[in-house]
Design a protein around this nucleic acid. Structure first.
Length: 354
DNA sequence: ACGTTCAGTTGATTTACATCA
DNA sequence: GATGATGTAAATCAACTGAAC
């Protein structure tokens, strides 16, 4: 079972998806039908590796990576870099650090109907009035006012002049309320437009360098600290959501594995019962047995074991396939195969040399 | 030493719902 | 029964803190 998370990076193809779901070896399954050891070393010891913010989690077993579920791993488009749906084209948001992102003036709009968020114009206006305040006055409680200011600049608001006036009244009211008790922590609600702008920025960069932070703060009329905090919280939210998705996925995997385990146990039981009820098939005439002096394995047993292993190998196939494989395994137990002298490779080499 | 990120927490605000007049 | 005011719990989210790197 693998989990591949990409929070901070562009979604990468999962390497394990390149691997066709292979039949699992009997070693992996700890399933041995051959000669009744039945112990089948369980190799369920899985290790979980987790790589920092690459967020790639791999649960592997001794045999290396393998899939246990046909379900594709869940990967959230949690941003950044998640493509914006075509049906919801991005708002005309531009990033201060991208010099070629200047928004055209509404008057000179090449695209009819697009007023555009002229953040530059906005920033210029804001800067003109508040630059002298050294940023301290840019934010809460004044940020409620700044949010209001943003509203004026955002396209597609579809709001009437009266709506905006109401916003302004509310903003002024809240600001004055805040002023009354300056000691308490101010709770700022970023405007939708500010949030949207920050979201767009987050798509580009889940973290900000100081330059980007400053530029963004200036454009949104917020303190750099506010921008920083917003990005912190945004990353935390992303991680939380991804964790929830991971949990769901792990739960599903667990259920699948439990079912698979039950099925294999049942199959093993069936094969053991079969062996018990037909013991004479295992009582081979001594003359037909050939033991390899080197590996001390009986040739016929090897053949049988191999066939049994095939059944185990098929264990990850569909139920129908498994049933067929099981039938085949059983069938092969009855007509005991023609005993062929087992020649160990080393013996072969030795024989050839002599 | 400094800056940044993260995990955990706090507290203001919003939202949904229930109750009552 | 419909409506509006009120209270409350839960959810949301900006902001803070301290540890780790």
């Amino acid at each position: 079972m693998e989990l591949a998370l990409s929070l901070g990076d562009a979604p990468k193809p999962f390497t394990f998806l390149d691997k066709t779901p292979k039949a699992v070896s009997n070693k992996d399954l700890g399933f041995c039908m051959g000669l009744g050891s039945g112990s089948g070393g369980s190799s369920d010891d899985k290790t979980v590796s987790r790589e920092g913010d690459g967020r790639r989690e791999v649960i592997r077993d001794e045999g290396g990576e393998r899939r246990v579920s046909s379900d594709p791993p869940v990967q959230l488009e949690l941003l950044p870099f998640s493509p914006v749906p075509r049906s919801h084209p991005p708002t005309q948001l531009r990033f201060p650090w991208l010099t070629d992102n200047l928004v055209s003036e509404p008057g000179s709009s090449d695209e009819p109907g697009r007023s555009g968020l002229n953040v530059n114009r906005f920033a210029a206006a804001a800067t003109a009035t508040e630059e002298a305040d050294d940023g301290a006055a840019l934010s809460s409680p004044n940020s409620t006012v700044s949010s209001f200011q943003m509203d004026f600049c955002v396209r597609n608001s579809g709001r009437t002049k009266r709506d905006l006036e109401i916003d302004a009244e509310r903003a002024c009211s809240r600001a004055s309320d805040d002023d009354e008790n300056g000691s308490t922590r101010k709770k700022l609600r970023l405007s939708k437009d500010q949030s949207a702008f920050l979201e767009e920025s987050f798509k580009e960069h889940s973290t900000l360098n100081p330059k980007q932070k400053l530029a963004l703060a200036k454009q949104l009329n917020l303190r750099p600290r506010q921008v920083e905090v917003w990005f912190q919280n945004r990353r935390a939210r992303t991680k939380l959501k991804q964790t929830e998705v991971d949990c769901e996925y792990l739960k599903r995997c667990c259920e699948t594995l439990t079912q698979e385990n039950r099925r294999l146990q049942k199959e093993l039981q069936e094969l053991r019962a079969l062996k018990t009820s037909q013991p004479f098939y295992m009582q081979l005439p001594a003359t037909t047995l050939t033991m390899c002096p080197s590996c001390e394995r009986v040739a016929t047993t090897t053949t049988t074991t191999t066939n049994s292993s095939n059944a185990a190998t098929n264990a990850t196939a569909t139920t129908a396939q498994n049933a067929a494989a099981l039938s085949l395994s059983k069938a092969r137990l009855y007509p005991f195969p023609q005993v062929q002298p087992h020649m160990h490779p080393q013996a072969q080499t030795h024989q050839a040399a002599s």
